[in-house]
């Protein structure tokens, strides 16, 4: 089966500074894959490089077998890659419902309504807040909007950048429960970048370890969880 995402030799640089290099990574068609690493390892740069948002990037990027290298960000999104960036990147003056409508704008009207209902089922709190301007939401609610907005576009691959960052544990639970439910219900392939290795390894079946801009290890999540070096570096054991 063709991989949902195949990355070969990805290099992302900002001017003279290389953020990531020689990244080889595969996300299977029905797979959730994590990328763990410490702050500054290059996780966000890697995702930005895939989405065409980084200053300069090079390498082979295949989405469902078709090249997306060099495409502009909106074209990559239209291909079916949903990206939930670090820091949410919401539209501060739009309401929750408008944010979701932006996400679902390419769907037929009837399907938009169905997806909107699905989004509200996934995050019931957003139904209560649908008329509220997103800037006035809590951090957790904003993260829910960011994920729900992306899901509205019916992506065929989900890239998530630090979805737990800055959230209280109880809200992290809500967010991760929603992601797990998505995996279970739809088998949506995901590439999850996360500093919280516990959560990432619990959600994903496989993980890459990124250090100083390079992938240093790839293994099954269970194997990484039991690895003393990984435990010491990322799991706080």
């Amino acid at each position: 089966m063709t991989a949902a995402l195949s990355v070969r030799g990805l290099r992302v640089a900002y001017g003279a500074v290389t953020a990531v290099r020689d990244i080889d990574l595969v996300v299977g068609a029905d797979e959730a894959v994590a990328v763990i690493g410490s702050n500054g390892a290059g996780k966000t740069s890697m995702l930005r490089g895939i989405m065409g948002l980084a200053g300069a990037s090079a390498g082979e990027l295949l989405f469902n077998g078709a090249s997306i290298a060099g495409l502009r960000t909106h074209t990559i999104a239209r291909c079916g890659i949903g990206y939930v960036p670090e820091g949410r990147e919401l539209f501060p003056g739009l309401t929750v419902k408008e944010e979701l409508q932006i996400g679902g704008r390419f769907l037929p009207r009837a399907e938009q309504a169905v997806k909107l209902d699905e989004a509200f089922e996934l995050f019931p709190r957003l139904r209560e807040r649908q008329g509220q301007i997103t800037r006035t939401l809590s951090g957790g609610e904003q993260q829910m909007v960011a994920i729900a907005r992306t899901l509205m576009s019916r992506p065929r691959l989900l890239l998530l950048d630090e979805p737990s960052l800055g959230l209280a544990p109880v809200i992290q639970d809500v967010v991760y429960a929603a992601l797990a439910s998505l995996r279970q219900r739809e088998g949506l392939p995901m590439l999850l970048v996360e500093q919280n290795a516990h959560r990432a390894l619990n959600l994903c079946s496989r993980a890459y370890v990124l250090e100083l801009g390079q992938i240093v290890r790839v293994a099954e999540s269970a194997s990484l969880r039991n690895d003393p070096a990984i435990q010491a570096a990322y799991l706080g054991n």
């Binding site: 960000t73 909106h74 990147e89 919401l90 539209f91 932006i102």
Partner: peptide, 11 residues
């Protein structure tokens, strides 16, 4: 309001 986010959303 957010050009990057608009691009991410396919605009």
């Amino acid at each position: 309001q957010n050009r990057n986010a608009a691009e991410i959303m396919g605009i």
